[in-house]
Design a protein around this nucleic acid. Sequence first.
DNA 1: CACATGACTGACT
DNA 2: AAGTCAGCCATGT
Length: 111
Amino acid sequence: MDKDFYARVFDVVRLIPKGKVTTYGHIARCLGSRRSARLVGYAMNLSHTQDPTIPAHRVVNRKGLLTGKMHFKDIDQMQRLLEKEGIEVKNDQILRFQDHLWDPAVLGDDL
DNA sequence: CACATGACTGACT
DNA sequence: AAGTCAGCCATGT
C-alpha cells in the first residue's frame, strides 16, 4: 500500500464496528507486523487531526485498559463513549474485554 | 545519519 | 498474580 502507515491505522480503526473494541497489537498484526503496535498508538495521536471522527475510544491496549483516555479532550470522554455503546468500563478497564474484542482480520465476521 | 520519543507487548522475577 | 525491563518500528529534530 502506498498509503502511509498512519493512514492504514486510521482506515482500520474507522471500520471497527460499534460496540466493539480492538487492541493496538491486533491492528499492527493486521498491517503485517505485530511489533508495530507502538506505531499504532503513536498514529492515534494524530487521529484527532483527521477529518472523519476516528473512534479512537474503541482502541485499547491488550489488557483492555483505557491507556489513551488522557489524550482525549476529556479523559472521561473515552469511557463515556464506550459505555454509550454498551461496553462496561470499570476503573479504566473494559469488563468482558474479550467479549467485546474485535479482530480487524475478521472484517465484519462478527455478525 | 544518529538520537530521542511513544495511546505497546512479551518475557522474566 | 503483579511489577519491572528490554525490544521494536515509524516519525521528528
